[in-house]
Design a protein around this nucleic acid. Structure first.
Lengths: 337, 337
DNA sequence: CTGAAAGCGCTTACAG
DNA sequence: CTGAAAGCGCTTACAG
């Protein structure tokens, strides 16, 4: 059971590898390149089938200078939001005959540098990256060398790179407004302490919306750090619940934050949700089990994945390296009570 | 900004590519192959650094016949269990300098065939596969050609292939017994209708344990189909809750089933959990928000990923293709109430 | 200690 | 209509 290559087939049939390659790539009728007779073409195809020929994509990639592989750099594949994103990126890449190598950064810029380097060695044709805090230089390093890159979910505003994001500021205002409309007057925010632009936008949306209503109170903003998440959330919830009896709403800036925050809230006070209305960015499975309405921002994950792949493909297939930022619409939705 | 190859460096330094390759691979002191002088070696390393040389893994893979890539074939990356598994497989593969290409089958055997083929063309050195129902021929097709394969989470009992699984039968008995011990007498089972061995084991564990207690009632087993999941679960819950007033326990055979089943249960009757005790395979985030104790089987996901990678590496690096089945211990755990 | 050369499996410009 | 040959970027047996 030897490895069967194009050469094996050629020898078997007593013809040239050229003919075999041409036919198997459907180029036997090409203009510039040679043509192969109809019956010979059929013979080749049959032989390939019989011998279970499978092309070697490594060799093809080496010759063509294209690996037909996308490097996906995300924060953490075990986070449901990113897992969903990865799923859709993959499904869509497949339609272009592209494979996806997934790597995790765990929100570390050092790992981001490492992962982009590893993927580059593997000759990926382009990158889809969920950029981390302080990871800007590594993205710039890629684009400077004209390597196709599309950022997703987040982006660096000062960097001229294609990106697929949602309007975080607008979504944040919208959901904050929703809390206000439903009667909340003292709305806390639990958000990551981060230099990332989308976090700032979420914060600004909340701040501006509350200011417009004359309800802004900076002491109700609790910033937690990714590295000490569990501890910080405990403290944040504690301080919002205990120290401020008037609190009647909490906006969680991500699904992880809402999941952990809700646990802590309900642990501290099982009746907390009857006094405090909760809203969140992204959905969590747990929402469907709360007995109160929870508005959340539903990001259009399938479209985000699709757009990112398409933007990247355009960069790969053409020389059009112009940076395009696609802002998709997020929806305000509610859990089923 | 031209692509810098080993040749570029060689020309720059006026030496042979042999020397450059040897040094950059740390083989300048090799026994059989040539040796390179110390100062020349240093010069080469420095040039590589200065020129930002990155090796081309495609070329290396083609020459070596190894791509240092693992093909991961799972059912669905957006399922939390598999996402976690993928995460740990990746983290561990990285330690061996291996990358992971992830593909989804969505539980379809046809996609399994397609994905293994695609990954083979990409010259992956081995496969880690969560096998689907009726996917046996495609796994056999790989092993027959001596391609390294490790099955994970599930396996085909008749196929002699390495696998990393847990003792589903035992875990199922254990958790069923737990329900019995806590007083349940009429325990329903909601499980996938599937020919997959691990599902049968979960079912058998439940059946045998109940028989031992004289509590077995076949009409309490509800098998749902993957393709009509939502509808089937509705029907199953309906029939367990409505038609059988005596039911006092339900064992869900996977986390997806328990998540959807719980939603349906609580929708039908918000007080359902005070009358019916629930147990599950695998944890769901929602459990922490239930106000009752839910025992669940915690699979050792990090160890599963680690073992699978190690088994595969052994197959790849040695000629030892002997099939090894690793059965890991699952833990019975509880949500925090 | 060092280099010329073959070859991994492909694609394709070039020459018949 | 068809084939011989070069070359993608590596590694390594072989010969000096």
């Amino acid at each position: 059971m030897e490895r069967v290559s194009i050469k094996t087939i050629a020898e078997q049939l007593g013809i040239s590898v050229t003919a075999v390659s041409l036919v198997l790539n459907g180029k036997e009728r090409g203009e510039t390149s040679g043509r192969v007779g109809k019956e010979m073409a059929e013979k080749i195809r049959q032989a390939a089938r019989e011998m279970n020929y499978e092309p070697n994509n490594l060799a093809r990639g080496l010759k063509m200078g294209r690996s037909e592989t996308i490097g996906l750099v995300i924060a953490d594949i075990s986070n449901l939001f990113f897992a969903n994103l990865a799923f859709h990126i993959q499904e869509h890449a497949e339609k272009f005959g592209y494979g996806v190598i997934i790597t995790n950064t765990n929100e570390s810029d050092l790992k981001m540098e490492k992962m982009t380097k590893i993927l580059e060695r593997r000759q990926v044709d382009g990158f889809i990256i969920v950029p981390t805090e302080y990871g800007e230089p590594y993205v710039r390093n890629l684009t400077r060398r004209n390597i196709p890159v599309v950022l997703i979910d987040r982006y660096y505003p000062k960097l001229n790179v294609s990106a697929v994001v949602i309007d975080n500021y607008k979504a944040s205002r919208e959901i904050t407004n929703n809390l206000v409309e439903s009667g909340c007057r003292h709305i806390g925010l639990i958000i990551y302490k981060s230099a990332l632009h989308h976090m700032k936008e979420r914060k600004n949306g909340y701040v501006d919306e509350l200011k417009d209503h004359g309800l802004f109170n900076p002491s109700l903003i609790k910033e937690v750090s990714y590295s000490y998440l569990s501890e910080d959330i405990d403290i944040a919830i504690e301080s919002l619940l205990m120290k401020d009896e008037t609190i009647d709403g909490i906006f969680f800036a991500t699904n992880t934050l809402s999941l952990m925050g809700l646990k802590r809230m309900l642990h501290a006070d099982p009746q907390a949700l009857s006094k405090i209305k909760v809203a969140s960015f992204d959905k969590s499975d747990a929402f469907d089990f709360m007995h109160v309405t929870i508005p959340y921002i539903q990001q259009p994950i399938p479209e985000m994945g699709k757009s990112a792949v398409e933007l990247l493909m355009k960069q790969i297939k053409t020389d059009d390296k112009e940076a395009v930022t696609i802002k998709l619409q997020a929806q305000l939705e509610y859990n089923k009570v």
